[in-house]
Amino acid sequence: MPAGNADLIRILVADDHPILREGVSAIISMQKDMEVAGEAATGLQAIALYEALRPDVVLMDLRMPEMNGVEAIEKIRAAHPDAHIIVLTTYSGDAKALEAMRAGAAGFLLKSSLRRELLDAIRAVHRGQRHLHPDVAQDIALHAIEDSLSPREVEVLQMIAGGHSNKQVAWKLGVAEETIKSNIKSIFGKLRVSDRTHAVTTAAKRGIIEL
C-alpha cells in the first residue's frame, strides 16, 4: 500500500467532469481527517488508480468514457472485495441504485446533495456502513416487491423510447410482432402504466432506461 498518513481517509475521485472533481476535492481538502489520493476521468483510469493507490474510499460517477461506473465497480470489487465505493450520480432512479449496489457499491449519492451529504457518507462507508440518499432509499422500498423488467423487456422499451414502432422492434430483434406486443403488455403491467409514453417516462425516471 502506498505510503501516507494512516490517520487520514484517503479518497479517489472518479468523474469525467473536471469541475466536479475540483469541487469535491476542495470540500475534502478542508477536512482534517481526509485527503484526496487521486483523480480519475474514466472508468479504466479509476481501476488503474485503485490498484496503484489503494485508497480507503472511492467516489465513482456512473457515466464515464471508456467504461461506465458500474463496470468499474464490478472490476474493482472482483479484485478487492473489501473496496469501499460510493456512487456519485445525477440519476435518482431506484434501478440505477440497485444496479450499483449489486455491483458492490456501499453508498449512493446524488450530485445535487453533495454539500449536505458527502462528508457523512465518506465517513460512514469508511466505517463499513452503507449510505443511501433518502429519496433513493424510499424509491427502492416502494418498488422492492414489484416484478422487475426482464433484460428483453428493457431492450424493447429502450427501442420504443428511441421512436421505433412495434414492427420495427420486432424486425430488429428477429421475433414476431405479436411477441413484442406481449412484451409491451408485460411492461405496462410491471410499471403500472397504460400507454407507451407513460412507460418510457416512468422507466427513465427510475433509471431503467436512458433517454
Rank of each mutant, 00 (worst) to 15 (best):
192 R>K: 13
195 D>N: 15
187 I>E: 00
178 E>Y: 01
165 S>P: 08
183 N>T: 04
187 I>Q: 03
158 Q>N: 12
153 E>M: 07
179 T>G: 06
159 M>W: 02
150 S>L: 10
163 G>N: 01
190 K>D: 03
165 S>Q: 07
150 S>C: 09
166 N>V: 12
147 D>N: 05
164 H>D: 03
176 A>Y: 10
177 E>P: 13
169 V>N: 03
165 S>I: 07
195 D>T: 12
173 L>H: 09
152 R>T: 12
159 M>N: 15
152 R>M: 13
196 R>N: 03
198 H>W: 02
161 A>W: 04
151 P>R: 06
145 I>P: 06
174 G>L: 05
163 G>S: 07
200 V>T: 12
178 E>D: 10
166 N>S: 13
158 Q>K: 14
153 E>F: 01
188 F>L: 02
169 V>T: 13
160 I>M: 14
188 F>W: 12
184 I>A: 03
198 H>K: 15
146 E>F: 10
196 R>G: 00
161 A>C: 09
194 S>K: 11
144 A>I: 12
154 V>D: 02
198 H>Y: 06
191 L>C: 07
186 S>L: 05
160 I>E: 01
167 K>Q: 15
162 G>E: 04
177 E>F: 00
164 H>N: 09
150 S>R: 13
184 I>M: 10
152 R>A: 08
174 G>N: 12
154 V>T: 08
149 L>H: 00
174 G>C: 05
181 K>W: 01
177 E>V: 08
187 I>Y: 10
178 E>L: 12
187 I>P: 00
185 K>I: 09
157 L>R: 04
150 S>V: 08
185 K>P: 06
159 M>C: 11
146 E>S: 07
200 V>R: 02
174 G>P: 06
168 Q>Y: 00
170 A>Y: 08
154 V>M: 13
148 S>F: 08
165 S>D: 04
147 D>R: 13
199 A>N: 05
173 L>G: 03
150 S>M: 15
169 V>E: 05
190 K>Q: 01
158 Q>W: 05
171 W>T: 14
194 S>L: 03
167 K>I: 11
190 K>G: 10
143 H>W: 04
200 V>L: 13
148 S>C: 06
194 S>I: 14
182 S>K: 15
156 V>M: 08
184 I>L: 14
154 V>K: 11
147 D>S: 03
168 Q>C: 01
196 R>T: 07
198 H>A: 15
149 L>Q: 00
181 K>S: 11
188 F>D: 07
185 K>V: 08
146 E>L: 11
142 L>Q: 12
170 A>V: 08
192 R>Q: 13
177 E>N: 06
191 L>E: 09
146 E>Y: 03
175 V>A: 07
177 E>R: 09
157 L>C: 00
149 L>V: 05
196 R>I: 04
165 S>W: 04
196 R>M: 11
181 K>M: 07
148 S>I: 08
151 P>M: 09
